[in-house]
Write a protein that binds this DNA or RNA. Structure first.
Length: 546
RNA sequence: GGCCCCUUGGUCAAGCGGUUAAGACACCACCCUUUCACGGUGGUAUCAUGGGUUCGAGUCCCGUAGGGGUCACCA
């Protein structure tokens, strides 16, 4: 059989150049020893998963802390799944969370193009080479035929797939091939696998450690009938020519690792290092089972969720780091002021089992992160959120900058010995501050109506915005004492039955009347910010409705 | 079903043959506090299971169970 001729007949691509050309066009990178070239290779489906960010973070750290390169490749070999504008979504969401690429799609770089769709020529060159070497062949099998052999295989409990005796097109004669071509039958190019499923090797995975892999024996498709490569083939070619040194990807790829190992071998490429990381999971609310965060069922699986909710990008990044390397938290505790990137990230410390997504942990991390911002930074962060996700009323909060800054200074505890941690997200913060802009509409008291009335009327009668903190509190105490609420906490604790409650209960009533909330920062200052008239109005507006 | 991976508290998890089995989140209690917080101290709670190996096992070996992944002209 004339394989050269066959290769040309099967893959008529005029752009294809001799293989040496590609090796020269994409030379080895002049990097320091130990520097890693990593990549992110999403397909443009328009959906960015939390898992994408998780893997992105690992790849980013590995590249940048070793003095290497992180690049972005778009795996757009499946036209059916391609979504318009998806690349923009990928880039903007990764950028939002602080993932910076050194090269890649829409960026720049010497190893492009970074869209697989645009690299047809290289794939074709190597597919032809494999055909010439007798390591690949055309397959004309139809879906029906494939279905039949699959049925037969499952009935007889045989390994499913296209291999060995089931690989009918392996043994097609030259005449049969050309006949089929002449008849215009569609065909794919398959790898003629040299592997044996009974042979196992141990393979070192950077994350999982030593694992056993079975040799591949599947004649996998490398070029689809439209001439576009499958993931496996494109992966081998691209990661070789972009000179990737380490591939960190989701563990769903572990099962196809044997295919990739064979492909690299057959192509004569050096295998990169691999690390397969586990996916983030959650407990299903319906059946209580543990499962992967689902794009369809779980809103928190999507990266846009964190933007809508107003999570600070640094908070999400920090939380993800705690999952990525469990010693990160202790480091952070030790060096709270150091930037994350100074942490020495270690791939070998990654967990081997899938972690459960923990929203309350994220919230806790978020409080700490927001607790490091200045009032101005918080202002900008909240405003940015409100621009796209807030209501008109909320956007109006930002018109009087001085007023809001004063509020934020109070609510964040800036200037006091200890910062407060009231804020979790931009959204929650904006919502929490509504009482500075509107009179609360619903108020729920724990005391009975008469008591509430007595407290509020009594306090309103003496309140003045000119009061400093101690004068203010003395007035609260006076009201409390008059109504038989304990003023001295020790006395109260000794004999609680002697009192109707304590100052804290009285203050709570006033607080709810003014803000609608049981938890707020220093009430005295809040009332000062609101102004005497507004504060008094709020005290008395409740009284009338009781 | 075949193959592969995983299994320490409610959650994230340290541990790599001898520890009172770290730490963080959550929860509870107390302390600090003139209100709300912040903060501090303490507490509840974990080695899936059955066999080995060993003077000694969370740690090594085998089995079992449970969970996850994967078996496409999708990535």
């Amino acid at each position: 059989m004339n394989l050269n001729q066959l290769a040309d007949a099967l893959i008529p691509d005029e752009n294809v150049k001799p293989l040496q050309y590609y090796e020269e066009k994409y030379p080895l990178r002049p990097l320091e020893k130990g520097a890693q070239v990593t990549r992110l290779a999403p397909s443009p489906t328009g959906f960015m998963h939390l898992g994408n960010l998780y893997v992105a973070l690992a790849n980013e750290r590995l590249a940048h802390q070793s003095g290497g390169v992180l690049y972005l490749r778009i795996e757009d070999t499946d036209q059916k799944r391609k979504v318009e504008g998806a690349v923009k979504v990928i880039q903007s969401s990764l950028k939002y969370f602080g993932i910076d690429f050194d090269e890649g799609a829409e960026i720049c770089g010497e190893y492009g193009p970074y869209y697989q769709q645009q690299r047809a020529e290289v794939y074709h060159a190597y597919a032809k080479e494999l055909i010439r070497q007798g390591l690949a062949y055309p397959c004309f099998c139809t879906e029906e035929e494939m279905g039949k052999t699959r049925e037969y295989q499952s009935e007889n409990k045989l390994l499913p797939g296209y291999y060995g005796e089931f690989a009918k097109c392996r043994s097609l004669s030259e005449e049969q091939i050309y006949e089929n071509l002449k008849a215009g039958k569609p065909y794919v190019i398959r790898l003629k696998s040299q592997g044996d499923v009974n042979v196992k090797h141990t393979f070192h995975d950077e994350i999982k450690g030593d694992i056993t892999v079975t040799e591949n024996n599947q004649d996998v498709v490398i070029l689809k009938s439209d001439g576009i490569p499958t993931y496996h083939f494109a992966h081998a070619i691209d990661d070789h020519f972009v000179r990737t040194t380490m591939v960190i990807r989701g563990e769903e790829w572990l099962a196809s690792l044997p295919i990739h190992i064979e492909l690299f071998k057959v192509l004569g490429f050096r295998l990169p290092k691999y690390g397969h990381n586990c996916s983030i999971q959650k407990i299903d609310e319906e059946d209580g089972a543990r499962r992967k965060l689902s794009k369809r069922k779980d809103p928190e699986a999507s990266l846009v969720f964190y933007r809508e909710q107003g999570y600070h990008p640094l908070a999400v990044k920090t939380y993800l780091m705690t999952l990525l390397n469990s010693n990160f938290e202790e480091w952070k505790l030790k060096f709270p002021d150091k930037p994350i990137d100074e942490f020495k990230y270690s791939i070998s410390k990654m967990g081997k089992s899938g972690a459960l997504f923990d929203l309350s942990k994220l919230n806790d991390v978020s409080k700490d992160v927001l607790g490091t911002l200045t009032a101005e930074e918080m202002f900008d962060f909240m405003q940015e959120w409100a621009k796209t996700y807030g209501t008109d009323a909320q956007r109006a909060y930002f018109t009087d900058r001085e007023y809001l800054l004063k509020i934020l200074t109070l609510c964040m505890g800036i200037g006091s010995k200890k910062r407060r941690k009231d804020f979790i997200t931009a959204k929650q913060a904006v919502e929490m501050l509504h009482y500075f802009f509107e009179t609360p509409t619903s108020r729920v008291y724990r005391q009975d109506g008469d008591t509430v009335k007595a407290i509020l009327e009594g306090f309103a009668a003496t309140y003045s915005a000119a009061d400093d903190n101690s004068v203010w509190f003395n007035k609260v105490k006076a009201v409390a004492e008059g109504l038989n609420f304990a003023v001295d906490m020790k006395a109260y604790k000794a004999n609680p039955e002697n009192y109707r409650g304590n100052v804290s209960d009285v203050a709570e009533v006033i607080r709810i009347a003014v803000t609608g909330l049981a938890n707020t920062p220093d009430l005295c200052t809040i009332m000062q910010i609101l102004g005497e008239q507004s504060a008094k109005e709020r005290l008395l507006s409740t009284v009338q409705s009781l």
